[in-house]
Nucleic acid binder design. Structure first.
Ligand SMILES: [Mn+2]
Ligand SMILES: [Mn+2]
Ligand SMILES: [Zn+2]
Ligand SMILES: [Zn+2]
Lengths: 147, 147
DNA sequence: ACCGAAACTGAAAATGATTATCATTTTCAT
DNA sequence: ATGAAAATGATAATCATTTTCAGTTTCGGT
């Protein structure tokens, strides 16, 4: 159905390794695909539990790791320590603009910045492996309300 | 002596609040100023202990927080979760280029990137509060050795 | 459909970095 | 010198994440 492609990616990953399918994994995948962006392991766990009360938080952690390995998810950590997972399938690389007041996250893609980052890699003789750029600020709405 | 200015900043901060001086703080400050860049609380603790075995790790944590508050240090976290503290006094804002293989950290300042970041803030109606940009890659030396 | 090895699960315990508690010690203005 | 306020450090608590391990499930032969 709606997420056939994502499910195919995961199944391919499962069968290409010596991994096995399980209903827990299917349920967690389902909940992940339906979840909003940038979920916490715990948030996803709560979402799954609503429909499938038997799944454990530990399995959610393990399954999120699998999603990352097969390219369906990416782990991102903002300033507080907790890891968040975002959908990666069919998405471009992007960075984040975060409101420190309300936590809203805006995804930004700026090819000009990426070019300049490449310039830095070249200048220092590094082979790029990936980067993170998080811009923190206060959004318009929070400026209106707060004071 | 060598770090008179930094010490002055700290003393001013101490006396302007209702804080008090202590030999532990002096020792930790000493060790911090002499330390390399981007130390861990634990690394600093070990360095201090060599000269002053009585200081506790807890006090190192607390004192590092003070350094951050008075502008002598900045907390930075790279991809592994542990916090690192870098010298901030008399330093410009900068970002980091990190070798994923050997952990080497290169500090980069790129006004062009900063300009583009500001453009993003403006485009989305955010008031900037601070950002982090970490570029991960493999350095030249690591490419030679490793394979 | 059956088997068994290998993988998966989840509860409980372990981890590791950091923080809170609190009784004792130290600082510093009076 | 004195005492209130702050600092210290041992211990215990957090909190997110990982490890362990015994019981359960999957799946490729049969
Ligand atoms: Mn995102
Ligand atoms: Mn630095
Ligand atoms: Zn906001
Ligand atoms: Zn290197």
């Amino acid at each position: 159905m709606k997420y056939a492609k994502e499910e195919a990616v995961f199944e391919k990953y499962i069968s290409s390794g010596k991994l096995k399918q399980s209903k827990q994994r299917k349920n967690i995948m389902q909940a992940f695909l339906e979840s909003g962006k940038h979920v916490t392991a715990e948030e996803l766990y709560n979402a799954v539990k609503r429909k499938f009360p038997s799944v454990g938080l530990i399995t959610v952690y393990r399954t999120l790791k699998l999603f990352c390995k097969c390219g369906l998810a990416r782990e991102v950590c903002f300033e507080n320590g907790t890891a968040r997972y975002e959908h990666l399938y069919g998405r471009q690389h992007h960075d984040h603009l975060i409101c420190s007041a309300c936590g809203k996250v805006i995804e930004i893609e700026d090819p000009d910045i990426e070019k300049l980052q490449d310039r830095q890699y070249k200048m220092h003789g590094f082979v790029p492996q990936g980067h993170r750029m998080d811009l923190y600020g206060i959004c318009r709405k929070c400026r209106m309300c707060q004071r």
